[in-house]
Design a binder for these strands. Structure first.
Length: 281
DNA sequence: CATGCGTCCTGCTTGC
DNA sequence: TGCAAGCAGGACGCAT
């Protein structure tokens, strides 16, 4: 569920507590979380001793950039990359706090705090990479532009290449990065476009409207601190606020906010899609 | 190559 | 009431 706005909110909230701290240890209660170097010892060796230089986000990935290890002569930087998938959560635990039962990975810090990665459904992943390996990671390398970096021309070109329905194209991270089911449905409603329209069949005006809608919806969601359906919380334990602004997501059967006809839903691209038959063409 | 579907997980919700 | 099936959903592996 954490999509771009939720991961962005998390990155901003974590940064003050992480930047400048040195990683003093890594504990991995659930080894399944590890992607890339699969062994706990290898993963820890790659990360321990490094200073956290920045906390950033790309698409739905949370990225901690790490400085060289002083104990390794000529060492280069590294990146700690987390994908939260559906239920990943972070918080910073103070010294002496017991490790939570559900923690999957713990990053011990030089200020004696611990960055805790918890993840109820265990789909999330963590990996440590050199910057070169990050660039060579297929998933990362093939990510499309962030919504605000997407130009109308590039969006037009990307959509005209797709033979899928527009809903599937929005969820395709190689087309545009960071959109998941919630923001796809909300953006399609804002642009008044049916989710099952073939991407190629959209008119130029519809494509421009849709890109603008995506950008506006994502910006509003970040401003509201993301959306909480069930699991998502900021690192401070606070729920997001954008779920109170949903127009269609999860509202099948409710009256359309624009025309009051009941909203309908259908499985499109394997996901439940909610939309208004009357308003969305 | 591109597309689509099943899979991974767990807990809550729905329906018989 | 109780319990099983259904659902949620991002990315990936595999089939087409």
């Amino acid at each position: 569920m954490p999509e771009l706005p939720e991961v962005e909110t998390i990155a901003r909230a974590l940064a003050p507590g992480l930047v400048g701290r040195v990683i003093t240890g890594i504990d991995v209660p659930d080894a399944k979380v590890l992607a890339g170097p699969k062994r706990r010892a290898e993963f820890a060796a790659m990360a321990v001793g490094r200073t956290i230089q920045s906390v950033a986000r790309r698409a739905k990935l949370l990225l901690l950039t790490l400085g060289p290890r002083p104990q390794v002569p000529g060492d280069g930087p590294a990146v700690l990359a987390f994908h939260l998938k559906m239920t990943g959560r972070f918080h910073i635990a103070p010294p002496g706090a017991p490790d939570p039962d559900r923690a999957r990975l713990l990053v011990r810090l030089s200020d004696d705090n611990t960055l805790v990665f918890a993840d109820l459904r265990r789909f999330g992943t963590a990996r440590v990479l050199t910057p070169e390996a990050l660039s060579a990671w297929d998933f990362y390398a093939s990510l499309g532009p962030e919504p605000w970096d997407m130009t109308p021309d590039a969006f037009e070109a990307a959509l005209s290449r797709k033979s899928t329905r527009i809903k599937a194209a929005l969820l395709d991270q190689t087309v545009i990065a960071g959109i998941g089911n919630i923001y796809a449905d909300e953006s399609l409603f804002a642009a008044r476009i049916r989710p099952d329209t073939p991407a190629k069949a959209l008119t130029p005006a519809q494509r421009r409207r849709l890109l603008k809608a995506v950008q506006d919806v994502i910006a509003a969601a970040i401003a509201a601190g993301g959306s909480t359906i069930r699991d998502y919380r900021t690192p401070d334990g606070v729920e997001g606020g954008f779920q109170n602004h949903f127009q269609v997501y999860g509202k099948s059967g409710d009256p359309c906010p624009a025309c009051t006809a009941p909203l309908t839903h259908a499985k499109i691209a394997g996901r439940t899609s909610t939309y208004c038959r009357k308003c969305q063409k």
